[in-house]
């Protein structure tokens, strides 16, 4: 029995001569919140559309719940809730009518409409036309639609795109609360690591159509190494002293601060003593930690520099 809810093997999408997605091997296990990251235009939406059968892959295969999408479409899609790209809606219908349409297509109980309206807090606005909704409300309606069939797999493509910070926070809290209550698997895409940082358990990073990282978020966090920044009255003199002593090249940043890559306590203490003994004034010794966002950017840059 395969424990991967989503598995793609060498999935490709080629437009004329260029690959939008190349040899994508996604693996998403049951119960995970998988953060699917990449800059705009890197192939996230194309990949997601292939997962759901909206566009046909040029090569490769998609397996959801251990079954081929092509052969078991009906059975698979019953268990999937999806929000692809911008939210989909019928503007001339009310929020309730929009949900009613999906409810009929999924053949679930009508009570479920009130439930999802409650989850995304749109109960009060349910009889308003959707074209009068704010972007955040449309986004929440999209999530309500995705949740309507009590899916075992939820696929959300940039669910916070275009929202203000409060809206982003709200959607994040909503998504975080889901797996605990229903035990569902979530794939959520974003171009910002910070957005999924606090909820994802696994991370996949895609750049120019290639999956360049796929592992747990801890592994990604461990890549965020720290450095020590030292500010002295004469940086060039300090640099020569330290380089002679440790036989290691030391960098200066734009503001003439020394940047040390070795960060253990003993080493820093030793450095400090040497600088003081050389009659230099040490103003500051501080740790600089690169953020996950920097790590993310470095991974993407590193792959294509």
């Amino acid at each position: 029995m395969c424990s991967n809810i989503i598995e793609t093997v060498n999935l490709c999408k080629k437009y004329k001569t260029t690959y939008a997605v190349k040899d994508l091997n996604l693996q998403v296990k049951k119960g995970e919140i998988y953060g699917f990251l990449g800059p705009n235009g890197s192939g996230k939406t194309t990949s997601i559309k292939m997962l759901l059968g909206l566009i046909k892959a040029t090569a490769g295969s998609v397996t959801l719940f251990g079954k081929q999408l092509e052969s078991d479409r009906n059975h698979i899609l019953k268990k999937v809730g999806a929000l692809v790209e911008s939210p989909s809606y019928y503007g001339h219908l009310t929020g309730y009518e929009n949900l009613k349409i999906i409810q009929r297509m999924l053949n679930v109980s009508e009570k479920r409409i009130e439930e999802v309206l409650n989850i995304v807090r749109l109960t009060k606005a349910k009889n308003k036309l959707v074209k009068q909704y704010s972007l955040g409300m449309k986004q929440r309606l999209g999530i309500a639609i995705a949740l309507l069939g009590k899916p075992e797999l939820l696929i959300l493509d940039e669910p916070t795109n275009g929202l203000d910070p409060a809206g982003i926070h709200e959607i994040r809290d909503l998504i975080k609360s889901l797996p605990e209550t229903d035990g569902i698997t979530i794939l959520i895409s974003s171009h910002l690591l910070s957005e999924i940082d606090q909820m994802a358990t696994q991370v996949g990073i895609i750049s120019e159509g290639n999956l360049i990282f796929q592992d747990s978020i801890e592994v990604l966090r461990n890549k965020s190494d720290s450095q020590i920044r030292v500010r002295v009255n004469d940086a060039n003199k300090a640099k020569i002293i330290l380089e002679n002593k440790f036989d290691d090249s030391i960098q200066l940043d734009a503001n003439s601060n020394l940047i040390l890559n070795k960060t253990d306590d003993n080493h820093i203490s030793l450095v400090n003593n040497m600088l003081v003994d050389s009659n230099l004034s040490v103003y500051r010794i501080e740790e600089i930690k690169s953020s996950l966002e920097d790590v993310f950017l470095n991974i993407i840059k590193g792959e294509y520099s």
């Binding site: 559309k49 759901l52 059968g53 909206l54 479409r73 009906n74 899609l77 019953k78 999937v80 999806a82 692809v84 790209e85 911008s86 939210p87 989909s88 809606y89 019928y90 503007g91 001339h92 999906i102 297509m105 999924l106 959707v130 639609i145």
Partner: peptide
């Protein structure tokens, strides 16, 4: 038009009906 305008196609086509 009802489908093209608000992205209805991509919503409908990820649901069970063929």
């Amino acid at each position: 038009r009802n489908e093209n305008f608000g992205g209805g196609w991509k919503q409908m086509l990820v649901l069970p009906p063929s």
